[in-house]
């Protein structure tokens, strides 16, 4: 991991580090599943949720994760911040750092802001998503969900479908999954990907049959409706017909295929309701559960890293 700097992108983590975070996440999930959903690990530590971009889901997931580790959580979102007063992102973060948080959870609309802030802060950062760059905890929770279901990830056919170009989820997924040996396919309208994405280690296809046939895992990305206005696709109707996933297409995949989605789902657009609600295949809510576990693990691994200690 980037030393002392937390988890800002799967592009920086080794295979072993990703595996360690996921292994710990499974133990964290056991905590979430019992009646006392709290361990005292981070008693007295302050976790700051610093969200420059609105996201109730991710913020809530991190907040629950931190609280289950007994940390104190402070939420700071841009609407109530001094950003409107013209303060820079760096100054905002440094001001909060002066109050001694143990870790920052940061979401921001600018790609690369984690690298920028890492240069200015001593406090470790966990990225909750930056621009169109990375969303590392989402990537790891996706991998965890696959490992949980398939007991492995190497050599699985994983299809990531949708707006690849603007997706930080797609990038974190492919960085992590290729490190763990998966075969990743990108399926997208040609306006929402470029040929250069193949250099990330994926095969690119524009054909639904090609994409979904024999898939072990299908990850449908959320389509931002505003992309239609900029001419990237003509209508939701056509998008859904050509690039969406429905029950019929799901039959192309392996019988034990699982379907995932980072949420929130546009029902009837990228994913038909029948697939989203198909208990045999849909693992969307499992992802949400695993999300808390991954974030508990990420916070735990980011905070507990100083000084030496020996047993006995």
């Amino acid at each position: 991991m980037v030393p002392g700097k937390g988890i800002i992108g799967l592009k920086y983590l080794s295979r072993k580090e990703i595996e360690q975070i996921i292994e710990t996440a499974f133990s964290m999930r056991d905590v979430s599943r019992r009646s006392v959903k709290k361990v005292p690990t981070l008693r007295g530590k302050t976790v700051v949720n610093l969200f420059f971009e609105a996201s109730t889901r991710t913020k809530t997931s991190f907040e629950i994760a931190a609280k289950r580790l007994s940390a104190d959580v402070v939420n700071f979102s841009y609407t109530s911040s001094s950003i409107s007063k013209g303060e820079t992102t760096i100054d905002t973060a440094k001001n909060i750092e002066a109050m001694h948080p143990a870790v920052f959870i940061i979401r921001h609309s600018s790609s690369g802001v984690m690298e920028l802030l890492s240069r200015h802060l001593k406090t470790p950062i966990i990225s909750a998503g930056d621009g169109t760059n990375e969303h590392p905890t989402q990537g790891m929770l996706d991998i965890m969900t696959i490992m949980d279901e398939k007991k492995r990830i190497d050599d699985l056919k994983i299809v990531i479908a949708g707006d690849i170009y603007h997706s930080r989820v797609a990038r974190s997924d492919i960085y992590g999954m290729t490190k763990l040996g998966a075969r990743v396919y990108f399926f997208s309208p040609p306006t929402l990907i470029t040929d250069d994405f193949a250099t990330l280690g994926a095969s690119i296809t524009y054909d639904a049959k090609d994409a979904f046939t024999d898939a072990d895992v299908i990850i449908m990305l959320r389509i931002q409706l505003e992309r239609q206005a900029t001419g990237l696709f003509p209508s939701t109707r056509e998008y859904s017909r050509i690039f969406g996933l429905n029950a019929q297409r799901l039959k192309l995949a392996r019988p034990d295929v699982i379907v995932m989605h980072p949420g929130p789902v546009n029902r009837g657009l990228e994913l038909s309701s029948s697939v989203a609600d198909d208990a045999d295949h849909s693992r969307i809510l499992k992802q949400v559960e695993n999300g808390v576990s991954i974030r508990m693990s990420a916070i735990y691994h980011t905070i507990g890293e100083e000084h030496g200690y020996t047993d006995n």
């Binding site: 360690q20 133990s27 056991d30 690990t41 735990y300 905070i303 507990g304 100083e306 200690y309 020996t310």
Partner: peptide, 22 residues
């Protein structure tokens, strides 16, 4: 039982111990 999460010395831990299953 894995007691990693219950230790009172987490800030002093070396590396980042993997939490094994309980």
């Amino acid at each position: 039982l894995d007691i990693t999460l219950y230790r009172d010395d987490v800030a002093m831990r070396t590396g980042r111990a993997i939490v094994k299953a309980t």
